[in-house]
């Protein structure tokens, strides 16, 4: 019993920590600090996944944890740091919405996911249901980061934090197959699509990664 409640508390704390860090992302107004917060997010995810691997006695999840740690907490933030530096865009992030409304919206989303998930999973085991509720919160907050930022780099960071929420949900669902494959697929996706192609192309054409520069042009009005 003691062991069970400890394992419950630890995973609860880690998942709750992810939600908290997602909130911290909402009010970062500089790219460097946003990247640092994201690295922290990935680190906590790695810890959480490793804890799930230990509790569920599922060694393959350690692979997912290692991917989260090495790839998302170290390689991607460092690479994005360099890109931001090279492009000289480490000035303020231009948010589409102010911090106040964003935080309020974030709280509403977390409340929504708690009410929704805790209500529908009443029959599931408590560890999984709390995990799922937190995971949905992280997903929705990641979505919020994506829609409130106009800069391509911060949109990608939002997407990655959203994906962290999905990994949290997948590892929380005990015995779910293909978790490792999915996390590998996501990492490849991020590595190739985002950094390799889009940023390269966007920079090549406009010397800017500000997506609003793209918004000026619409096929309808040419």
């Amino acid at each position: 019993m003691q062991m069970h409640s400890l394992s419950f508390d630890v995973s609860h704390t880690l998942a709750g920590g992810l939600v908290l860090i997602s909130f911290m992302m909402l009010y970062q107004d500089r790219l460097y600090s946003l990247l640092n917060v994201f690295a922290l997010h990935a680190l906590v995810l790695a810890l959480s996944v490793a804890w799930q691997a230990f509790v569920q006695d599922a060694p393959h999840l350690y692979i997912t944890a290692t991917i989260a740690l090495v790839f998302k907490a170290i390689i991607i933030p460092v690479a994005l740091h360099r890109i931001v530096k090279q492009l000289g865009i480490h000035r303020d992030i231009e948010s589409a919405v102010g911090i106040g409304p964003t935080m309020l919206a974030g709280m509403a989303l977390v409340a929504l996911s708690m009410v929704l998930m805790l209500r529908v999973t009443a029959e599931a085991d408590p560890l999984a249901r709390e995990d799922l509720a937190f995971a949905l919160s992280v997903v929705l907050l990641g979505l919020l980061v994506m829609v409130t930022r106009r800069n391509a780099v911060s949109q990608v960071v939002g997407f990655m934090s959203l994906e962290n929420g999905l990994v949290l949900a997948a590892t929380g669902a005990k015995g779910m197959p293909l978790v490792v494959e999915i996390s590998v697929a996501f990492s490849i996706l991020i590595a190739f699509i985002v950094i390799g192609i889009f940023l390269f192309r966007i920079r090549e054409r406009f010397d800017s990664v500000d997506v609003s520069a793209l918004d000026d042009y619409r096929g309808e009005r040419r």
Binding site: M146, A152, F159, F206, V211, L214
Partner: peptide, 12 residues
């Protein structure tokens, strides 16, 4: 210009 905007929007 337009193709990149379309691809980015599609991606997001």
């Amino acid at each position: 210009h337009a193709a990149l905007e379309a691809a980015w929007k599609y991606f997001i």
